[in-house]
Design a protein around this nucleic acid. Structure first.
Lengths: 181, 181
DNA sequence: GTCTATATTAGGATAGAC
DNA sequence: GTCTATCCTAATATAGAC
Protein backbone atom coordinates (compact mmCIF):
# COMPACT_ATOMS: atom_id res chain seq x y z
CA UNK A 1 0.00 0.00 0.00
CA UNK A 2 2.89 2.30 0.82
CA UNK A 3 4.50 1.80 -2.58
CA UNK A 4 1.23 2.18 -4.44
CA UNK A 5 0.43 5.38 -2.55
CA UNK A 6 3.83 6.85 -3.41
CA UNK A 7 3.47 5.85 -7.06
CA UNK A 8 0.04 7.50 -7.12
CA UNK A 9 1.38 10.59 -5.38
CA UNK A 10 -1.08 10.34 -2.51
CA UNK A 11 -1.15 9.17 1.08
CA UNK A 12 -1.50 5.60 2.25
CA UNK A 13 -4.63 6.42 4.24
CA UNK A 14 -6.30 7.73 1.12
CA UNK A 15 -6.11 4.35 -0.53
CA UNK A 16 -7.99 2.86 2.41
CA UNK A 17 -10.52 5.66 2.15
CA UNK A 18 -11.26 4.80 -1.47
CA UNK A 19 -10.82 1.03 -1.53
CA UNK A 20 -11.51 0.06 2.11
CA UNK A 21 -8.62 -2.47 2.22
CA UNK A 22 -5.85 -4.02 0.17
CA UNK A 23 -7.95 -6.93 -0.97
CA UNK A 24 -10.59 -4.68 -2.53
CA UNK A 25 -7.95 -2.57 -4.21
CA UNK A 26 -6.49 -5.71 -5.76
CA UNK A 27 -9.92 -6.74 -6.93
CA UNK A 28 -10.60 -3.36 -8.54
CA UNK A 29 -7.32 -3.49 -10.44
CA UNK A 30 -7.97 -7.04 -11.62
CA UNK A 31 -11.46 -6.24 -12.87
CA UNK A 32 -10.26 -3.34 -14.92
CA UNK A 33 -7.24 -5.11 -16.42
CA UNK A 34 -8.81 -8.53 -17.02
CA UNK A 35 -11.95 -7.07 -18.56
CA UNK A 36 -9.99 -5.58 -21.42
CA UNK A 37 -8.40 -8.90 -22.33
CA UNK A 38 -11.62 -10.63 -23.35
CA UNK A 39 -14.02 -7.96 -24.56
CA UNK A 40 -12.51 -7.68 -28.01
CA UNK A 41 -11.98 -11.44 -28.36
CA UNK A 42 -15.66 -12.05 -27.71
CA UNK A 43 -16.65 -9.25 -30.03
CA UNK A 44 -14.62 -10.58 -32.95
CA UNK A 45 -15.67 -14.18 -32.45
CA UNK A 46 -19.37 -13.41 -32.43
CA UNK A 47 -19.24 -11.19 -35.52
CA UNK A 48 -20.39 -12.57 -38.87
CA UNK A 49 -16.97 -12.36 -40.52
CA UNK A 50 -15.31 -15.31 -42.26
CA UNK A 51 -13.23 -17.70 -40.14
CA UNK A 52 -9.99 -16.65 -41.78
CA UNK A 53 -10.78 -12.99 -41.15
CA UNK A 54 -11.56 -13.71 -37.51
CA UNK A 55 -8.25 -15.47 -37.02
CA UNK A 56 -6.34 -12.61 -38.58
CA UNK A 57 -8.26 -10.04 -36.54
CA UNK A 58 -7.69 -11.81 -33.22
CA UNK A 59 -3.97 -12.16 -33.84
CA UNK A 60 -3.72 -8.57 -35.01
CA UNK A 61 -5.63 -7.26 -31.99
CA UNK A 62 -3.68 -9.28 -29.43
CA UNK A 63 -0.31 -8.31 -30.81
CA UNK A 64 -1.03 -4.61 -31.13
CA UNK A 65 -2.87 -4.33 -27.83
CA UNK A 66 -0.55 -6.48 -25.73
CA UNK A 67 2.57 -4.85 -27.13
CA UNK A 68 1.40 -1.69 -25.37
CA UNK A 69 0.83 -3.51 -22.06
CA UNK A 70 3.02 -6.63 -22.27
CA UNK A 71 2.80 -7.29 -18.53
CA UNK A 72 -0.95 -7.90 -18.65
CA UNK A 73 -0.98 -11.63 -19.48
CA UNK A 74 1.57 -12.44 -16.80
CA UNK A 75 -0.32 -10.36 -14.27
CA UNK A 76 -3.71 -11.91 -15.01
CA UNK A 77 -2.34 -15.46 -14.93
CA UNK A 78 -0.50 -14.80 -11.67
CA UNK A 79 -3.57 -13.32 -10.02
CA UNK A 80 -5.76 -16.24 -11.10
CA UNK A 81 -3.26 -18.78 -9.84
CA UNK A 82 -2.56 -17.08 -6.52
CA UNK A 83 -6.00 -15.76 -5.56
CA UNK A 84 -8.75 -18.33 -6.11
CA UNK A 85 -11.43 -15.67 -5.62
CA UNK A 86 -10.29 -14.05 -8.88
CA UNK A 87 -11.93 -16.93 -10.75
CA UNK A 88 -15.34 -15.84 -9.54
CA UNK A 89 -14.62 -12.27 -10.51
CA UNK A 90 -13.50 -13.30 -13.98
CA UNK A 91 -16.63 -15.40 -14.31
CA UNK A 92 -18.76 -12.33 -13.56
CA UNK A 93 -16.81 -10.31 -16.12
CA UNK A 94 -17.38 -12.98 -18.76
CA UNK A 95 -21.07 -13.29 -17.87
CA UNK A 96 -21.69 -9.59 -18.28
CA UNK A 97 -19.77 -9.75 -21.57
CA UNK A 98 -21.88 -12.62 -22.80
CA UNK A 99 -25.13 -10.95 -21.85
CA UNK A 100 -24.07 -7.80 -23.66
CA UNK A 101 -25.57 -7.18 -27.12
CA UNK A 102 -22.35 -7.58 -29.13
CA UNK A 103 -21.17 -10.95 -27.84
CA UNK A 104 -24.07 -13.26 -26.98
CA UNK A 105 -22.64 -16.78 -26.52
CA UNK A 106 -19.65 -16.33 -28.79
CA UNK A 107 -18.48 -19.92 -28.20
CA UNK A 108 -21.76 -21.28 -29.54
CA UNK A 109 -21.61 -18.98 -32.55
CA UNK A 110 -18.06 -20.06 -33.30
CA UNK A 111 -19.00 -23.69 -32.90
CA UNK A 112 -21.72 -23.46 -35.54
CA UNK A 113 -19.42 -21.64 -37.92
CA UNK A 114 -16.68 -24.28 -37.53
CA UNK A 115 -19.10 -27.16 -38.05
CA UNK A 116 -20.50 -25.53 -41.17
CA UNK A 117 -17.06 -24.87 -42.66
CA UNK A 118 -16.03 -28.45 -41.93
CA UNK A 119 -19.13 -29.87 -43.63
CA UNK A 120 -18.40 -27.70 -46.65
CA UNK A 121 -14.87 -29.14 -46.71
CA UNK A 122 -13.23 -25.78 -46.25
CA UNK A 123 -11.46 -26.75 -42.99
CA UNK A 124 -10.57 -29.81 -40.97
CA UNK A 125 -13.09 -30.51 -38.20
CA UNK A 126 -12.12 -28.97 -34.87
CA UNK A 127 -13.98 -28.31 -31.62
CA UNK A 128 -14.67 -24.66 -30.84
CA UNK A 129 -13.04 -24.78 -27.41
CA UNK A 130 -9.85 -26.31 -28.82
CA UNK A 131 -9.86 -23.74 -31.61
CA UNK A 132 -10.16 -20.89 -29.13
CA UNK A 133 -7.54 -22.17 -26.70
CA UNK A 134 -5.11 -22.90 -29.53
CA UNK A 135 -5.48 -19.38 -30.87
CA UNK A 136 -5.23 -17.66 -27.50
CA UNK A 137 -2.32 -19.86 -26.40
CA UNK A 138 -0.28 -18.93 -29.46
CA UNK A 139 -1.02 -15.22 -28.99
CA UNK A 140 -0.89 -14.74 -25.24
CA UNK A 141 1.67 -17.22 -23.96
CA UNK A 142 4.67 -15.54 -25.61
CA UNK A 143 3.86 -12.36 -23.69
CA UNK A 144 3.40 -14.12 -20.37
CA UNK A 145 6.53 -16.20 -20.91
CA UNK A 146 8.95 -13.54 -22.08
CA UNK A 147 11.58 -14.21 -19.40
CA UNK A 148 11.32 -17.96 -20.08
CA UNK A 149 11.69 -17.51 -23.83
CA UNK A 150 14.68 -15.21 -23.42
CA UNK A 151 16.41 -17.73 -21.16
CA UNK A 152 15.71 -20.82 -23.26
CA UNK A 153 16.55 -19.20 -26.59
CA UNK A 154 19.46 -17.31 -25.00
CA UNK A 155 18.41 -13.94 -26.34
CA UNK A 156 18.09 -10.48 -24.80
CA UNK A 157 15.33 -7.90 -25.03
CA UNK A 158 16.32 -6.93 -28.57
CA UNK A 159 16.32 -10.54 -29.70
CA UNK A 160 12.92 -10.99 -28.11
CA UNK A 161 11.57 -7.93 -29.94
CA UNK A 162 12.79 -9.34 -33.25
CA UNK A 163 11.26 -12.70 -32.41
CA UNK A 164 7.88 -11.14 -31.63
CA UNK A 165 7.95 -9.02 -34.76
CA UNK A 166 8.52 -12.09 -36.90
CA UNK A 167 5.84 -13.87 -34.93
CA UNK A 168 3.26 -11.19 -35.62
CA UNK A 169 4.02 -11.57 -39.33
CA UNK A 170 3.86 -15.38 -39.51
CA UNK A 171 1.45 -16.66 -36.87
CA UNK A 172 -1.73 -16.26 -38.91
CA UNK A 173 -0.26 -18.36 -41.73
CA UNK A 174 0.73 -21.08 -39.26
CA UNK A 175 -2.69 -21.21 -37.65
CA UNK A 176 -4.62 -21.12 -40.92
CA UNK A 177 -2.37 -23.85 -42.32
CA UNK A 178 -3.41 -26.08 -39.44
CA UNK A 179 -7.05 -25.64 -40.41
CA UNK A 180 -6.62 -26.65 -44.09
CA UNK A 181 -8.53 -29.85 -44.94
CA UNK B 1 7.93 -19.57 6.55
CA UNK B 2 5.49 -20.56 9.30
CA UNK B 3 3.17 -22.35 6.89
CA UNK B 4 6.01 -24.08 5.09
CA UNK B 5 7.49 -25.26 8.39
CA UNK B 6 4.15 -26.71 9.49
CA UNK B 7 3.64 -28.41 6.13
CA UNK B 8 7.12 -29.92 6.41
CA UNK B 9 6.48 -30.97 10.02
CA UNK B 10 9.47 -29.05 11.37
CA UNK B 11 10.15 -25.80 13.13
CA UNK B 12 10.38 -22.38 11.56
CA UNK B 13 13.92 -21.89 12.83
CA UNK B 14 15.03 -25.04 11.09
CA UNK B 15 14.18 -23.60 7.72
CA UNK B 16 16.47 -20.68 8.42
CA UNK B 17 19.15 -23.11 9.54
CA UNK B 18 19.04 -24.92 6.20
CA UNK B 19 18.25 -22.10 3.76
CA UNK B 20 19.57 -19.03 5.58
CA UNK B 21 16.55 -16.86 4.62
CA UNK B 22 13.28 -16.86 2.73
CA UNK B 23 14.81 -15.60 -0.47
CA UNK B 24 17.25 -18.51 -0.70
CA UNK B 25 14.51 -21.01 0.06
CA UNK B 26 12.44 -19.60 -2.78
CA UNK B 27 15.42 -19.86 -5.08
CA UNK B 28 16.06 -23.48 -4.15
CA UNK B 29 12.44 -24.40 -4.85
CA UNK B 30 12.47 -22.61 -8.18
CA UNK B 31 15.66 -24.30 -9.33
CA UNK B 32 14.30 -27.73 -8.59
CA UNK B 33 10.87 -27.17 -10.17
CA UNK B 34 11.95 -25.16 -13.21
CA UNK B 35 14.78 -27.54 -14.05
CA UNK B 36 12.34 -30.40 -14.60
CA UNK B 37 10.31 -28.42 -17.13
CA UNK B 38 13.06 -28.10 -19.73
CA UNK B 39 15.36 -31.08 -19.33
CA UNK B 40 13.13 -33.48 -21.25
CA UNK B 41 12.22 -30.89 -23.89
CA UNK B 42 15.89 -30.31 -24.65
CA UNK B 43 16.57 -34.05 -24.65
CA UNK B 44 13.85 -34.82 -27.16
CA UNK B 45 14.66 -31.92 -29.44
CA UNK B 46 18.33 -32.81 -29.75
CA UNK B 47 17.71 -36.51 -30.43
CA UNK B 48 17.97 -37.80 -33.99
CA UNK B 49 14.29 -38.79 -34.26
CA UNK B 50 12.05 -37.63 -37.11
CA UNK B 51 10.29 -34.27 -36.73
CA UNK B 52 6.87 -35.86 -36.48
CA UNK B 53 8.09 -38.21 -33.76
CA UNK B 54 9.59 -35.30 -31.82
CA UNK B 55 6.33 -33.39 -31.92
CA UNK B 56 4.38 -36.38 -30.69
CA UNK B 57 6.92 -37.08 -27.94
CA UNK B 58 6.96 -33.50 -26.65
CA UNK B 59 3.17 -33.34 -26.49
CA UNK B 60 2.97 -36.74 -24.86
CA UNK B 61 5.62 -35.87 -22.27
CA UNK B 62 4.13 -32.50 -21.38
CA UNK B 63 0.62 -33.83 -20.96
CA UNK B 64 1.56 -36.85 -18.86
CA UNK B 65 4.11 -35.00 -16.73
CA UNK B 66 2.14 -31.80 -16.19
CA UNK B 67 -1.06 -33.69 -15.39
CA UNK B 68 0.73 -34.94 -12.29
CA UNK B 69 1.88 -31.43 -11.29
CA UNK B 70 -0.55 -29.08 -13.03
CA UNK B 71 0.42 -26.12 -10.85
CA UNK B 72 4.00 -26.07 -12.20
CA UNK B 73 3.52 -23.87 -15.29
CA UNK B 74 1.56 -21.27 -13.32
CA UNK B 75 4.14 -21.29 -10.57
CA UNK B 76 7.13 -20.92 -12.91
CA UNK B 77 5.51 -18.11 -14.90
CA UNK B 78 4.50 -16.27 -11.74
CA UNK B 79 7.98 -16.52 -10.27
CA UNK B 80 9.60 -15.26 -13.45
CA UNK B 81 7.23 -12.34 -13.69
CA UNK B 82 7.42 -11.32 -10.04
CA UNK B 83 11.09 -11.94 -9.25
CA UNK B 84 13.42 -10.61 -11.95
CA UNK B 85 16.37 -12.49 -10.42
CA UNK B 86 14.69 -15.76 -11.43
CA UNK B 87 15.59 -15.02 -15.03
CA UNK B 88 19.28 -15.31 -14.21
CA UNK B 89 18.68 -18.54 -12.36
CA UNK B 90 16.74 -20.01 -15.26
CA UNK B 91 19.53 -18.94 -17.59
CA UNK B 92 22.02 -20.90 -15.49
CA UNK B 93 19.74 -23.92 -15.52
CA UNK B 94 19.48 -23.78 -19.31
CA UNK B 95 23.22 -23.27 -19.70
CA UNK B 96 24.06 -26.35 -17.64
CA UNK B 97 21.44 -28.24 -19.66
CA UNK B 98 22.98 -27.14 -22.93
CA UNK B 99 26.47 -28.04 -21.86
CA UNK B 100 25.29 -31.49 -20.79
CA UNK B 101 26.03 -34.39 -23.16
CA UNK B 102 22.42 -35.16 -24.14
CA UNK B 103 21.28 -31.70 -25.22
CA UNK B 104 24.10 -29.66 -26.80
CA UNK B 105 22.51 -26.64 -28.49
CA UNK B 106 19.15 -28.22 -29.16
CA UNK B 107 17.84 -25.09 -30.88
CA UNK B 108 20.59 -25.26 -33.46
CA UNK B 109 19.99 -28.96 -34.04
CA UNK B 110 16.28 -28.36 -34.51
CA UNK B 111 16.97 -25.48 -36.86
CA UNK B 112 19.04 -27.65 -39.20
CA UNK B 113 16.45 -30.40 -39.15
CA UNK B 114 13.64 -27.96 -40.03
CA UNK B 115 15.63 -26.39 -42.86
CA UNK B 116 16.43 -29.80 -44.29
CA UNK B 117 12.82 -31.00 -44.13
CA UNK B 118 11.67 -27.76 -45.77
CA UNK B 119 14.18 -28.12 -48.65
CA UNK B 120 12.98 -31.68 -49.19
CA UNK B 121 9.41 -30.34 -49.39
CA UNK B 122 8.21 -32.39 -46.45
CA UNK B 123 7.13 -29.33 -44.40
CA UNK B 124 6.47 -25.63 -44.82
CA UNK B 125 9.46 -23.48 -43.87
CA UNK B 126 9.40 -22.32 -40.27
CA UNK B 127 12.00 -20.79 -37.93
CA UNK B 128 13.16 -23.03 -35.09
CA UNK B 129 12.32 -20.51 -32.37
CA UNK B 130 8.78 -20.04 -33.69
CA UNK B 131 8.38 -23.81 -33.97
CA UNK B 132 9.47 -24.26 -30.35
CA UNK B 133 7.37 -21.47 -28.91
CA UNK B 134 4.31 -22.62 -30.86
CA UNK B 135 4.68 -26.14 -29.55
CA UNK B 136 5.33 -25.14 -25.95
CA UNK B 137 2.55 -22.53 -26.00
CA UNK B 138 -0.02 -25.08 -27.09
CA UNK B 139 1.12 -27.57 -24.44
CA UNK B 140 1.88 -25.40 -21.43
CA UNK B 141 -0.54 -22.49 -21.62
CA UNK B 142 -3.69 -24.58 -20.99
CA UNK B 143 -2.20 -25.72 -17.68
CA UNK B 144 -1.16 -22.22 -16.62
CA UNK B 145 -4.50 -20.78 -17.70
CA UNK B 146 -6.89 -23.33 -16.21
CA UNK B 147 -8.89 -20.79 -14.18
CA UNK B 148 -9.12 -18.52 -17.21
CA UNK B 149 -10.27 -21.32 -19.49
CA UNK B 150 -12.90 -22.49 -17.01
CA UNK B 151 -14.29 -18.97 -16.70
CA UNK B 152 -14.35 -18.14 -20.40
CA UNK B 153 -15.77 -21.50 -21.51
CA UNK B 154 -18.09 -21.56 -18.48
CA UNK B 155 -17.05 -25.04 -17.41
CA UNK B 156 -16.12 -26.59 -14.06
CA UNK B 157 -13.25 -28.91 -13.11
CA UNK B 158 -14.92 -31.91 -14.76
CA UNK B 159 -15.49 -30.00 -17.97
CA UNK B 160 -11.86 -28.90 -17.89
CA UNK B 161 -10.69 -32.49 -17.47
CA UNK B 162 -12.74 -33.56 -20.48
CA UNK B 163 -11.35 -30.64 -22.46
CA UNK B 164 -7.76 -31.59 -21.61
CA UNK B 165 -8.34 -35.23 -22.41
CA UNK B 166 -9.63 -34.34 -25.84
CA UNK B 167 -6.73 -31.94 -26.24
CA UNK B 168 -4.15 -34.62 -25.50
CA UNK B 169 -5.75 -36.73 -28.22
CA UNK B 170 -5.97 -34.07 -30.93
CA UNK B 171 -3.16 -31.56 -30.44
CA UNK B 172 -0.49 -33.49 -32.34
CA UNK B 173 -2.73 -33.69 -35.42
CA UNK B 174 -3.37 -29.97 -35.25
CA UNK B 175 0.30 -29.08 -34.97
CA UNK B 176 1.45 -31.50 -37.65
CA UNK B 177 -1.28 -30.24 -39.96
CA UNK B 178 0.16 -26.76 -39.66
CA UNK B 179 3.54 -28.05 -40.86
CA UNK B 180 2.24 -29.72 -44.04
CA UNK B 181 3.61 -28.11 -47.19
C1' DG C 1 20.34 -30.64 13.99
C1' DT C 2 16.31 -29.26 16.27
C1' DC C 3 13.83 -26.82 19.39
C1' DT C 4 11.82 -22.44 22.45
C1' DA C 5 11.84 -17.83 23.11
C1' DT C 6 12.46 -13.38 21.57
C1' DA C 7 14.06 -9.36 18.93
C1' DT C 8 12.95 -6.41 15.02
C1' DT C 9 10.58 -4.70 11.36
C1' DA C 10 7.25 -4.02 7.91
C1' DG C 11 2.71 -3.51 6.53
C1' DG C 12 -2.26 -3.17 6.85
C1' DA C 13 -5.55 -0.55 9.03
C1' DT C 14 -7.83 3.18 11.90
C1' DA C 15 -8.58 7.72 14.56
C1' DG C 16 -8.94 12.20 14.26
C1' DA C 17 -7.40 16.94 12.71
C1' DC C 18 -7.98 19.95 8.87
C1' DG D 1 -11.29 14.32 0.55
C1' DT D 2 -6.72 14.43 2.25
C1' DC D 3 -3.42 14.45 5.59
C1' DT D 4 -0.50 13.03 10.24
C1' DA D 5 0.04 10.05 13.79
C1' DT D 6 -0.59 5.76 15.75
C1' DC D 7 -2.19 1.05 16.68
C1' DC D 8 -1.83 -3.73 15.90
C1' DT D 9 -0.70 -7.82 13.88
C1' DA D 10 2.02 -10.86 11.22
C1' DA D 11 6.26 -12.30 9.48
C1' DT D 12 11.30 -12.57 9.04
C1' DA D 13 15.11 -13.50 11.46
C1' DT D 14 18.27 -14.53 15.41
C1' DA D 15 19.99 -16.15 20.16
C1' DG D 16 20.76 -19.67 22.79
C1' DA D 17 19.37 -24.10 25.24
C1' DC D 18 19.36 -29.04 24.43
Amino acid sequence: MQEIAEEAGVNKALLHYYFRNKSRLGEAVFRRVAGGMFARLAGIMSSDAELEAKVRQVIEIYFTQLSKVPYVPGYVLSELNQHPERSHQLLEIVRTLRSSPDAPDFVGALSKQLAQAARAGRIRPIAADQFLVNLVSLCVFPFAARPMICAVLQIDQRGYDRFMKQRAATLAQFFLAALRP
